[in-house]
Amino acid sequence: MSTPRDLLITVIDMSPSHSVERGNLSLALAGAELIDLLAAEAIRLDDDLIVPTHPPQMSDRLLDQAASSLVGRPPYETLDDWLWRRGRGLSTAYVEALEADGQLIRKRHPRWMPARADRTTLADSAARRDAAERWASDEPVLAALVAAAGIHDRPAGEFPGAADDPVTTVLAALDDALKDLEFQRQRRAIDQAAFDNVWRGE
């Protein structure tokens, strides 16, 4: 299994008692992809630039897709640009991939219960057990990514690695992107509140 899939399975397992923002999860998944591409030596970092090194042998379709979308010549893509570009709608893509693999089951409610939304549950699979074991081991990388998704209370940037470690660099960029996302949400909320006040004549 890949780090993004382990992340998503962990989040789904924990989400009944935690709310998850789709944007946070998508950015975290994009960061997880970079971490796996680094581990496969498919990329290296030049400061905050993502430099492809050689065509990777990835066993995951979405990771293959991520690798093939890398900017292969200068000027290379920055970590921030990658997270926003690749992260757009990524949580939906990974959920659909889990469903296609039979690891995520959508339980549909009868037609006579239109007010009830369909519910997804994880199948009892080796992938789920592996993700649970990885989470139980308190692996720092997965813990930081789950934090980024908004479930764990440790900020994504608090990864106990060396300052020049590429994984730490990715997690720090992810933390910055999440702060920017939250700022955008707050600004939209303020703009909407101002519009509502004008509409009401206040």
Rank of each mutant, 00 (worst) to 15 (best):
G157Y: 05
S125Y: 02
L8D: 05
A32Q: 12
P52I: 06
D48F: 06
E21K: 12
D153K: 10
R61E: 15
K179L: 08
I105E: 05
K107L: 12
V170Q: 02
E21W: 13
P114C: 03
N197S: 11
A162K: 09
R5L: 03
A127S: 15
A147T: 10
V71K: 13
G87F: 08
S2L: 02
S17D: 14
L25H: 03
A67C: 06
W82F: 11
L29W: 10
D47Q: 12
G150A: 00
Y76L: 08
Q57D: 13
A143Y: 12
A93D: 15
P55N: 12
P4V: 05
N24Q: 10
P75N: 03
L34T: 04
I9Y: 02
E139V: 07
A126F: 07
R73S: 14
E133T: 08
W135Y: 13
L98C: 01
V51E: 08
P4Y: 09
R188T: 05
D13H: 04
L62Y: 04
A144Y: 08
H152T: 01
R22L: 10
S15A: 14
D138M: 10
I151N: 09
R185W: 10
G89F: 09
R22Q: 14
E41D: 15
A189D: 15
V198K: 06
A123H: 04
H152R: 13
E202Y: 01
D48Y: 02
L37N: 03
I50K: 13
R73I: 01
R111H: 09
E158S: 13
M1A: 10
A136W: 06
R116N: 00
V95P: 03
H54N: 09
D176Q: 11
L45F: 08
S17V: 07
A115I: 10
D6Q: 15
R106F: 04
L8G: 02
A177K: 04
A172N: 11
P55W: 09
E133L: 11
G161Y: 08
R111C: 05
S26E: 00
A117Y: 06
G87S: 10
P56C: 09
P52G: 03
I35V: 15
P114E: 07
A177D: 07
R108T: 08
A162F: 02
L104M: 03
K107F: 00
R188A: 11
R116M: 07
A193N: 12
D6P: 00
G157Q: 06
D196C: 00
G150D: 09
H152V: 05
A193V: 12
S125V: 02
A115F: 15
L70N: 05
W112D: 14
A28V: 02
P52Q: 05
E21M: 01
A194P: 00
I12A: 04
S19E: 14
M1T: 12
A39P: 01
L178I: 03
R188H: 07
G23H: 07
P110I: 00
E99R: 15
V198E: 13
N24D: 14
R185N: 04
P155D: 09
S17K: 14
T121E: 11
K107C: 03
D80V: 04
N24A: 11
R187D: 10
Q65G: 06
